[in-house]
Design a protein around this nucleic acid. Structure first.
Length: 333
DNA sequence: AAACCGGGGAG
DNA sequence: CTCCCAGGTTT
């Protein structure tokens, strides 16, 4: 083991944050943490980790739940396909397979998550390369734009002999999360500063990725019936969750006609996704139907915003009072 | 290779 | 406002 590897492990053993999954050994619990952490900050994932495991403590408990129950617990965490795939996984296997190769075949597990579970839960000697590791290794070796294959190969060769591969992987990630920050690396505090080839020009490693998020104009139709709001099961975006009809702005007239209503404009709501900026014009109308209580269904944040704007206005218009309609937000948490 | 998929915190 | 996070799947 080289000097920098010893330095990193020593640093990690002194500085590892006491994250809730770090004291777990149950592969299922490790898996849940890793899936929740996909493209999600630690601080955001922690409450969902506790909530999810309290409700679904084992793979069996998850398997016996309905997808809608699972989505209700996942509500607010984003990337809802993760929950769908985790649920599907629970029905595809009796127990988690203890190898990187087999794990990667499961729904929702790509190279990173499979490697993380294999190394942390099963001790397999395989490198887990996430965004942190990509950044740390790019800077350490001054790589401007390494490919995923190149990074995995590099990281695989760096796994120290005779050490816990799960601990090693987490040490690299921890360094990226706490010290080797994207826009403000704390080089003076870094245990690898003396070994880092990219330190002087850290901003070049890795080269920042371009992304543009074009704006998309949509309309939402809030129909207030006798017992609540008209909700439908969403498809495509937010698949599996519920919400009011959401469609391209140009379709408003046709949609209103299909429901036999004359909607009026209520508000505008903005919502950012990774690759789109949504601008939603919210329309509402009294509706000759039943409707239901939105709090009983899993809703994406966008729908909470829409209802939070629309319901007070519709209620104020004296249309139909909705049970427990709050002035802002439907169900914080 | 590029598009798609949420939400939130930091700067 | 922009950036990006313990990514994966689909086309």
């Amino acid at each position: 083991m080289e000097a920098w590897q010893k330095a990193l492990l020593a640093w990690y053993r002194q500085n590892a944050r006491p994250l809730p999954w770090r004291k777990e050994k149950d592969p299922y619990r490790i898996l849940v943490s890793e899936v929740l952490l996909q493209q999600t900050r630690v601080a955001q994932a922690i409450p969902y980790y506790h909530r999810f495991l309290a409700r679904f403590p084992t793979l069996k408990a998850l398997r016996e739940a309905s997808l809608e129950e699972v989505l209700r617990v996942w509500q607010g965490a984003g990337y809802y396909r993760r929950a769908e795939r985790l649920h599907r996984l629970s029905r595809e296997v009796e127990a988690l397979p203890p190898s990187f190769a087999a794990l990667q075949e499961l729904p929702g597990l790509g190279p990173y998550t499979a490697a993380a579970v294999a190394s942390v839960a099963f001790g397999e000697r395989v490198a887990a390369v996430d965004g942190n590791v990509r950044r740390v290794l790019s800077r350490l070796f001054a790589l401007e734009n390494p490919s995923p294959r190149e990074l995995f190969s590099l990281a695989q060769g760096l796994l120290p002999e005779g050490e816990d591969p799960g601990e090693w992987n987490q040490a690299l990630m921890e360094l990226g999360a706490v010290v080797c920050l994207p826009r403000k690396p704390l080089c003076p505090a870094c245990p690898l500063a003396a070994f880092c080839r990219g330190r002087e020009a850290w901003a070049r490693y890795p080269r920042p990725r371009r992304r543009e998020a074009p704006e998309e104009g949509l309309a939402a139709l809030v129909l207030l019936g006798r017992r609540g709001v008209y909700l439908e099961r969403l498809a495509g975006r937010f698949r599996g969750l519920y919400g009011v009809p959401l469609f391209p702005e140009g379709e408003l007239e046709a949609r209103a006609q299909a429901f036999g209503v004359a909607p009026r404009y209520l508000a505008e709501v903005r919502h950012a996704l990774t690759h789109r900026r949504l601008r939603v014009r919210v329309y509402g109308a009294p509706w000759d139907g039943e409707g239901e209580d939105p709090q009983a269904k899993p809703l994406p944040k966008l729908m909470e915003k829409i209802l939070g704007e629309a319901l007070p206005l519709l209620a104020h218009a004296g249309v139909v009072p909705l049970p427990h309609a709050e002035p802002h937000g439907i169900k914080p948490r």
